[in-house]
Amino acid sequence: MNQQPIGVFDSGYGGLTVLKEIIKKLPQYDYVYLGDNARAPYGTRSFESVYHYTLECVQWLFNKGCPLVILACNTASAKALRTIQQNDLPKIAPGNRVLGVIRPTTEKIGDYTQTKQVGILATAGTVLSESYIIETNKFYPGVTVFQQACPMWVPLVENNEHNSKGADYFIEKDLNALLDQSKNIDTILLACTHYPLLKHKIQQFLPEGISLLSQGEIVADSLEDYLVRHPEIEERCSRQGKLAFFTTDSPADFDAHATIFLGRKTHAKHADMDEVKLTKKNARGFHS
């Protein structure tokens, strides 16, 4: 059987915080990480743009042989995952699978709250999609979800300003805006993969008794469970503990930032999305 790596996709660097936890949990598998840094951030882009960009990147990872792709990006999971799963996957790779980070999180989030009131800190795109409200309601109908967009948080992290005093203003402002929506919120989810780097800052402004959750460990646990339940996919995943990193922008710039998120050095290569577009064009011409 032809075995290939698991693909992990993010609009930029943030997905590396998820990959870090996946590697801790499942170090035996091979992984290919793709960051669409040239078109980041996704958080402020339209649903249509996010969908097209995400689909191109998923196709690129399929072309690398990945039988399973994890969208380690909340915005892509919110705006593109369902359409790709339902409409595109049956056409382009019916034997492959694409998973996101929202469903695994919402399957568990209700277990953490006693008051049944949960806060979500996310990008504007994720908040507008209302994906966390919709998905949480499926698993925990009695839980109320409050959301707050934090548009400055990703730029702070990517410009290495997340430890600065300037970051305090925006963190306190957005956190207060969330908590002002309800005094009974006892669990807050960092629904953006960049935000774990701000966790220590957030906790400085967080009242006692409120749990602060990151997605990485939850997603890693969910992936382990998925592979157990789907041996037909697990058997196609190669197991040599290898890592490969690709970016649609500058590999040198990617490597300079990646250490902050992953905790180890990377040696990224450039990924050309024009190859995917060319393949699609040729395919249309062939079938016409």
Score class of each variant (00 low, 15 high):
N159T: 14
Q28P: 00
K277P: 00
R103W: 01
L190W: 03
G166Y: 08
G110I: 05
I92S: 02
P67Y: 05
M1Y: 13
T105E: 02
D36R: 02
I185Y: 06
A40E: 11
A149W: 08
S182Y: 10
N137H: 15
A283T: 11
I22E: 03
S238M: 04
G142T: 03
Y42M: 07
G12D: 11
S211T: 12
Y51I: 01
Q215H: 07
L34I: 01
L212Y: 09
Q86G: 00
H270W: 02
K201G: 00
I70R: 01
G142M: 09
D225C: 10
T193D: 09
Q4W: 04
Q114M: 00
F62N: 00
A256V: 08
E107K: 15
H287E: 14
I171T: 03
K25F: 05
T248S: 10
Y31K: 01
P67S: 07
E130C: 11
V58G: 00
Q59R: 14
V154P: 13
K138V: 15
E275F: 10
K173H: 14
I23Y: 09
F170M: 13
D225E: 15
E135F: 09
G209K: 10
L262K: 05
A268D: 09
G166F: 12
N87H: 10
A40V: 09
Q86P: 00
L68R: 04
A244W: 04
Y31T: 05
L262Y: 14
G110C: 07
G35C: 11
I109T: 04
G125V: 02
C192M: 08
D221Y: 10
G14E: 11
N159Y: 06
I102S: 01
T113H: 04
L178M: 10
A167I: 03
K269Y: 04
D88Q: 12
Y140P: 11
P67Q: 01
A258L: 08
L179P: 09
A252N: 12
L16H: 13
L206D: 05
I202A: 08
L81S: 04
L190N: 02
V127P: 04
A258Y: 11
T248A: 00
L178Y: 06
E56I: 00
L198G: 06
D174T: 04
S182N: 05
T187R: 01
N163Y: 10
H230T: 08
K79Q: 14
V118Q: 06
S182Q: 06
D274N: 11
E234W: 02
A283P: 00
L243S: 08
D180Q: 12
H267Y: 14
Q28R: 13
L156F: 13
G95P: 00
K79G: 03
Q59Y: 03
D10Q: 06
V143E: 08
G15T: 05
L156M: 13
L81A: 03
E235T: 13
Q203L: 14
D10E: 11
P94K: 13
H52I: 08
K280I: 11
K269N: 15
G142I: 05
S222D: 14
